[in-house]
Simulated assay, not measured.
Amino acid sequence: MRLSVLSPSVVGALLAPALLLSACSGEVSVGGPATVERADLEAELSANMSGPDADQFEVACEGDLEAEVEATQDCLITFSEDGSTTGVRLVVTAVEGDEVEFDQILFIPAGEVADAVERTYADPGLTIDEVTCAGELVGEEGATTTCDIASSEGDVTVEATTTTVDGLVVNFDLTVVS
């Protein structure tokens, strides 16, 4: 089977380009030493959204964030218009008293990357049985993940490489690597 390199960039997470996460870090008061409650994390992320589409998303975190340096918690931001999702990984950088500071790292969940790969390669007429990706695609220029396309016409491995990040939109190119 022959597949070509795709360019220009494929938009992996189709959240509204005008929707911005206004800070790359955050700070929450926990009122105690143990954790930042899930609801507080969601409220903090929601409060940091700006732009004309700021009311058209939902933030859902997987759970509480431990109040210890290097603890992580993943949250998903889902755009209500089309259901597209961008992940935000919160990483604790400091804990001082009842204040917890954290960095925010954007990523596209592996399932969203797989969906984009399938949409892209199915368009040229390829019958795809399944697409599985090795992992998420980090929203940082040059980050990569690989996806395997299973097809009755043959199997192919594609590499997704982040090209740009605009707000919550992570753009990436796809390249056939085998």
Rank of each mutant, 00 (worst) to 15 (best):
M1E: 08
R2W: 05
L6R: 08
A13M: 07
L14H: 08
A16K: 00
P17C: 03
L20F: 10
L20H: 12
S22F: 03
S25Y: 07
G26A: 01
S29P: 03
V30I: 12
G31D: 14
A34V: 12
V36N: 00
A39C: 07
D40I: 07
D40C: 05
A43W: 10
E44F: 14
E44A: 15
L45N: 01
N48A: 15
P52Y: 11
P52G: 12
A54N: 15
D55K: 12
Q56Y: 09
F57V: 12
F57T: 04
A60C: 08
A60S: 13
C61M: 05
G63S: 15
G63Y: 14
A67W: 04
E68R: 13
Q73Y: 02
D74Q: 14
D74P: 05
C75G: 04
I77D: 08
I77Y: 04
I77P: 07
T78K: 14
F79R: 05
F79C: 00
F79I: 05
F79Q: 08
S80A: 13
E81Y: 10
E81P: 10
E81M: 10
D82P: 01
S84Y: 07
S84G: 07
T85H: 13
T86V: 15
T86M: 15
T86I: 15
V88M: 02
V88E: 01
V92F: 05
T93E: 13
A94T: 06
V95F: 06
F102L: 05
F102N: 02
D103H: 02
Q104M: 15
Q104S: 13
L106M: 06
I108K: 09
I108T: 13
A110D: 09
E112M: 12
E112C: 09
E112V: 14
V113G: 09
A114I: 12
A114Y: 10
D115W: 09
A116K: 03
T120W: 09
T120N: 09
Y121W: 13
D123F: 13
D123K: 13
P124N: 06
L126H: 06
T127P: 06
I128D: 06
D129E: 12
E130H: 04
V131E: 00
V131G: 00
C133P: 04
A134D: 13
G135Y: 08
G135R: 09
G135T: 07
G139T: 09
E141F: 02
C147H: 01
I149T: 03
A150F: 09
S151M: 03
E153W: 08
D155A: 10
V156S: 02
V156K: 03
V158Q: 04
V158I: 14
V158S: 05
E159L: 04
A160T: 09
T163G: 10
T164E: 12
G167P: 03
L168V: 02
L168T: 01
L168M: 08
V169P: 00
V169Q: 13
V169S: 04
V169C: 04
V169W: 01
V170Q: 01
V170P: 00
F172I: 04
F172R: 06
F172M: 10
L174I: 02
V177G: 03
V177K: 05
